[in-house]
């Protein structure tokens, strides 16, 4: 035990507080049992496939169609959320309007509402005879059971990410910056694009990356509104489930590996973005 501890404490400094070995040991054991070993199972299971078999599974046309939809819709939804998330964060910080506290609290609804509930309610809202779908039906636009349905679900899921990334940065911004810009003769629009936007960019990108990463893996809120038509409105997480239900565990696992590698890349990107954001805005997190 002491040898193991000296690995984590190469300088051998003495610690005043007790419980280092116990808390770190427990953390490592629990993390390994609950997260690391189970995730490793995905990679070990895939190792039973040859490279060619693996490649054939993850590049099958039906699977590639799901990547296009999952990644495309998640990108689109994250981009839409960047625009409207910024407007929402701006309104919450800078303007007073009736019901503001309620709006601020409900921004987190997509985190708190179980995804299955979001799925059926979005579906009811956007089907041809729903409140919103009914408005679009006369125009010949169908949202539910098409790729647009996937987009709508991912917009809902992504709302809090951008707002909550940008809001604290906006709150911390000193008004002096804008006063200086104005006194130097900048228009309001110039002040926004040249002074405010550069400060907000890292937070906007962080929110974008978080919403995108969540959107690619999202399942519950999408499957009810997507219609799940192969090659058209089928998402990648669903194809994993479909393969599992056909007792094709290696197929399911191979697709899972692709998604996991993407998740790890996004996690890395998000960590770098947040470090950059922290440096840019002086917020120490």
């Amino acid at each position: 035990m002491s040898a193991a501890l000296s690995f984590f404490n190469p300088t051998g400094q003495t610690r005043v507080l007790p419980g280092f070995g116990l808390s770190l040991g427990y953390t490592l054991v629990y993390l390994s049992l609950v997260v690391l070993i189970p995730l490793a199972a995905v990679f070990i299971q895939t190792a039973s496939l040859t490279g060619a078999e693996f490649w054939a599974i993850v590049t099958a046309p039906r699977v590639v169609a799901t990547y296009k939809l999952s990644f495309g819709a998640a990108l689109g939804a994250a981009a839409i959320n960047v625009v409207f998330g910024l407007l929402l964060a701006w309104s919450l910080v800078r303007y007073s309007f009736p019901g503001k506290k309620l709006v601020d609290a409900l921004i987190d609804l997509p985190f708190a509402l179980p995804t299955a509930v979001a799925g059926i309610s979005l579906s009811a809202l956007w089907v041809g005879n729903g409140w919103l779908g009914g408005l679009l039906a006369p125009l010949g636009i169908q949202v539910a059971y098409t790729p647009f349905g996937v987009l709508v679900a991912l917009i809902f899921i992504g709302v809090p990410f951008v707002v909550r990334a940008v809001q604290p940065v906006l709150e911390d911004l000193e008004t002096e910056l804008e006063e200086v810009a104005a006194s130097l003769g900048a228009h309001r629009r110039q002040t926004f694009t040249r002074v405010l936007l550069p400060v907000l960019t890292p937070a906007l990108l962080t929110g974008f990356a978080l919403a995108f990463a969540r959107g690619v893996g999202e399942y519950g809120s999408v499957i009810f509104i997507a219609g799940n038509i192969p090659m058209v409105s089928e998402i990648t997480p669903l194809i994993i489930i479909t393969k599992l239900e056909q007792y094709d565990e290696s197929g399911a696992t191979a697709v899972a590996v692709v998604m996991l590698l993407f998740s790890f890349l996004m996690l890395l990107a998000i960590n770098l973005l947040q470090a950059w954001s922290g440096k840019r805005t002086g917020r120490n997190r």
Partner: peptide
Amino acid sequence: MAVTATRHGGSPIGIGSHRYEDNAAT
């Protein structure tokens, strides 16, 4: 890190917006 992203929610809003609305520069 803020994959929950909720941690920053609800900082005391509502008190600050007049600061911006009464200032010609903001």
